[in-house]
Structure formats: structure tokens, C-alpha cells
Nucleic acid binder design. Sequence first.
DNA 1: TAAAAATATTTGAGAATCAAAATATTGAGG
DNA 2: CCTCAATATTTTGATTCTCAAATATTTTTA
Lengths: 153, 153
Amino acid sequence: MSKTYSVLNELLVELFNDILMIEQQALKSKDFNDLSITETHTIEAIGMYGDKTMSEVAEKLNITVGTLTVAVNNLEKKGYVERKRSEEDRRIVFVHLTNKGKLAYRMHEKFHSAMINEVIEGLTDEEEKILVSSLEKLNNFFKKRLKKIGGEE
Amino acid sequence: MSKTYSVLNELLVELFNDILMIEQQALKSKDFNDLSITETHTIEAIGMYGDKTMSEVAEKLNITVGTLTVAVNNLEKKGYVERKRSEEDRRIVFVHLTNKGKLAYRMHEKFHSAMINEVIEGLTDEEEKILVSSLEKLNNFFKKRLKKIGGEE
DNA sequence: TAAAAATATTTGAGAATCAAAATATTGAGG
DNA sequence: CCTCAATATTTTGATTCTCAAATATTTTTA
């Protein structure tokens, strides 16, 4: 069991917890303090451009469409998103961000920028490349794992 | 805005989501399928060795003691943990894992091992170093950020 | 000893979530 | 054209996680 193992394990666990806590706390202090983390993620999944169907958004968030319906109801009430029924196929419901919603989206984006910049800063181009490819490997491992679990049982 | 930025951002976001999903799905397939993610984390926080007070565990999990009380009620009912009132100070309640709880703890640990090992395996020494130091930077950024938010308001 | 502090539990309320039932619409086959 | 299956969404009922505030018990302090 190498030293890298325990270091990496702790780092990942801490990272994960910190991200959650920061997102939570960042919301409380800022404008848009009527948004929960989950709601912010919903806004993120709807995205800046064009309409998305309820199913598309739910899939992206890995939640059921029923859950999303409730979430969108509230976000609509608060003025962050709007619904629009498709004319071609009236079963389908499109959602998109209002101006207020787009503002919130950009706010969240800013948080991410600050985070990433902090990481990149102080890395050489070479190191930057290595970091990206390392994380890609990490990601691939997870994807593989997910497929395996999902496919079997 | 460099290309690295958006790539890194996406990687981190995906990573975060994948970890959540994998933990979720890992639980469903395995034994101990009567445990939620939250409950697993509670077990993790109680830890293998010795007794911990309710307050200590709640602090570690960043939840209120009230929330923990409910969680421990359920875990006790399912046989994963036990309570014991302190003799010296009868306000204090200690919790510790039962044998079943310890088994679950080790199970979760195994999952982490598999994850980290798989990642390290595919990396050269050079990449390993860079990955660790980058994650450390990311972590420092978060710690700083948390202190700032927590301290001010 | 009486008041204040510390520790934990209970309670009431609000999100987030799912599964299953209900609703509305479309498309295909006869 | 009518019916039935499939698709997309919403509604409903239940559970879990969470907090804040009220309550209970015990210890400490003044």
C-alpha cells in the first residue's frame, strides 16, 4: 500500500466534502439565496442556450422526471425558469432559463472559474497537460465502472 | 479563457457526479443494501476504534446533533451501531460500531481502495506526483475559501 | 443552592427523492 | 377512422435527510 494511496484517498474524500460545503455556504451569503444546491444544479443542467425537454434535463441530472417536475414547479414560481409546450408534439415540455435564471447560471460559473484558476495557476504547461490527462484517466475508470454496474444487474 | 480551463472544469464536474452515482449504485448491488449513502458516511464517521460522542460525530459530518440522533436511531434499529451513556458525565452519549457495523465499514473501505488503486495503476510516477500536488492545491483553495466564509458572517 | 451551560432527544416543517398511478398526446395497424 | 400501445409529463404517497426550536437531563458555576 503506497503512500500515494492514502494521500490520494484522503484528498479525494476531503475534496468531495469541501465542494459540497462550499457550494452550500456560497449560496447563503450571495444574492440568489433562495436557491438550494440542487436547484442551482438544475439551472446548470438547463443551460444558457435554447430549450431542453424535461426528459433531457432529468437524464442529465440522473433523477426521475417526476422529481424534476417538482423542482421545475418551484423554480418557475421563483422566476428562474419557464416552461413551453412543444407545438409539433404536445406531449413534450421545453424548459429554458429566464434572465434571472441566466444571471444565476453565470454566478455559479464564476465560482467554478475561481476554483479552476486557482488550480492551473502555478502549473507549467507540461504539468497542466499531465493533470488533465490524469483526471481523464480517473474519469474513464469511473465511466467504465458505471457501465459495468449498470449493465449487469 | 484557455482550453485547459473548460476541460478541467468539465472533468471535475463529471468526477463529482460519477463518485456520487457509483457510491449509490455500489450500495444497491452489495450486501448491506439496507444502508443509504448518508448512513454509510455516518458509519465511516463513527469509525472502527473506540467510542465517539454524538457531538463529535455530528461535527465530523457537518450536521446538527438532532439530525444525527435520528440517523443513529435508525442505524441502531438495523443493528449497525450501539449507544452507551457515559458514566462520568451522564449527559454524554457514546456510539460505536457493532460487528455488523464494522463489516460495513470495511466494505466501504474496500470500495475506496479499488478506486484509488485503479487510478494509481494507470499513472507514471511523474503523473502521480502532479496529480497529488494539483489536488492538494485544489484542496488548499477550498480550505481557504471555507475559512473566509465561515469567519466573516 | 439557584442559575447558567452543556449534551442529547424530540418535534414540526421543508426539501429531494422514488415508484406507481393518472393524464394527455402521438403513431401504427387494421 | 378507431383502437391500442408507446411516449412524455404530472400527480400522489411515502421515505429520508435536514434544520431550528422546544424539551429533558445533567453538570458547572457563581
